[in-house]
Design a protein around this nucleic acid. Structure first.
Lengths: 208, 208
DNA sequence: AATTCCAGAGAACAGTTGTTAACTGGATGA
DNA sequence: TCATCCAGTTAACAACTGTTCTCTGGAATT
């Protein structure tokens, strides 16, 4: 399927990825709107002008980071919502998956949480678009559930957005707890579990 | 009670407020971590060095902005939660209050949403502390409600955090809809209302 | 009336930024 | 093999940054 890249294209992609990685690392202690192009190239070890071969601006790089951070996340979200088992099992499993993802890609999670309401408009827009996609996917999965019988499309989408926002809040809490003692992580797990449980209860009695 | 300020102190506070206002305006299109001290003083019309008479750094100014933006909000939150009437009336009233607040202080709301997960640690910390206070106040109000009978303290605080987060999400949605056609505002109102309603239902059946 | 205080001004500092133009040298395709 | 391409380099630019030190003029204090 995928054509083998030439030495040239391969090297270019390597540099591009290095720029993305360096930027992501630098963004742990600042926002995208204060990230300088020279700062990034310096971290990678290339000339400042090389930056322009890959991105028009740091905002452009930010949009690419959104795709990297959220693009690969869709499969996880889908499986999280659609896993079998009773309600309680699914909640536990969902939160566990979030915790694992934060462990595996903390910088990605931080970037999304930070730039979702950040100072760079195109990046905010890109994140918003991806989150809308997530909500639509979650809605599609919810619709398959027998519990969704009698629900209007609007209400399903409303619930899906509630889940997506809750997912982000929980991820952000796990992120803050990353370098904290494990008891703090346990506290977050308990909190998120019960919040999700309450939403689940509300869902169950929505049509009363 | 309050001693009348001398000409000197009054003028100083005036300049200080001008710096805060200018910074807040500049932060509509960028994040705090990219806000320069010279940028702020230029907007006010004072020398760059005058900045140091009021703030140690822009991060310090940011913390002051947190107090300005959230400090005056506590009364509103309390009355929002404690208003009388049945569940549905309270939800409508709460969302209306949020919408009004966003209309009245859009820059404040934007600042909080942006810097809650922003790149400046002391500011994040200040916002987090204030939100914890909000949650505790909400919890105290919830505890007065007869519906809270049988609830543990932990569960009440869990619910309070859910409400506070939901409040912020809703405020952020109204902010995005500020310059959109009124039908978009209506859509946000409907969405937020139903989400709050679902949470309310979950609350009602929590002890089942 | 004389003295102290202090918010703000002014000038200068070394260091940083984004962007331009012209270049080099190795991969690419004829 | 030779001409073309193009990712990355080098050098230079005007503009900007935070921070320092010294100074000033009017308010506050005695």
């Amino acid at each position: 399927m995928s054509h083998t890249l030439g030495i040239r294209q391969a090297q270019k992609q390597k540099t591009r990825q290095a720029l993305l990685d360096a930027a992501l690392a630098l963004l742990e202690e600042q926002s995208l709107s204060s990230l300088g192009l020279r700062e990034v190239t310096r971290a990678v070890g290339v000339a400042p002008t090389a930056f322009y071969r890959h991105f028009r601006s740091t905002a452009d790089l930010g949009v690419a980071l959104v795709d990297e951070a959220l693009g690969s996340l869709h499969p996880m979200v889908r499986t999280t919502v659609s896993t079998a088992g009773d309600s309680e099992e699914r909640i536990t499993r969902a939160i566990e998956l979030i915790a694992r993802h934060v462990d595996a890609y903390p910088a990605h999670v931080r970037f999304i949480a930070r730039e979702r309401h950040g100072g760079v408009q195109p990046v905010r827009e890109a994140i918003r678009a991806q989150l809308v996609r997530f909500a639509e996917e979650v809605k599609a999965e919810l619709a398959k559930d027998p519990e969704a019988a009698g629900w209007s499309d609007d209400d399903l989408l409303m619930l899906a957005h509630l889940y997506v926002d809750q997912m982000l809040i929980t991820a952000s809490l796990f992120l803050e707890a990353l370098e904290a003692p494990p008891e703090e992580r346990e506290r977050v797990t308990q909190l998120a579990t019960r919040q999700l449980r309450l939403i689940s209860i509300g869902r169950g009695h929505w049509l009363d």
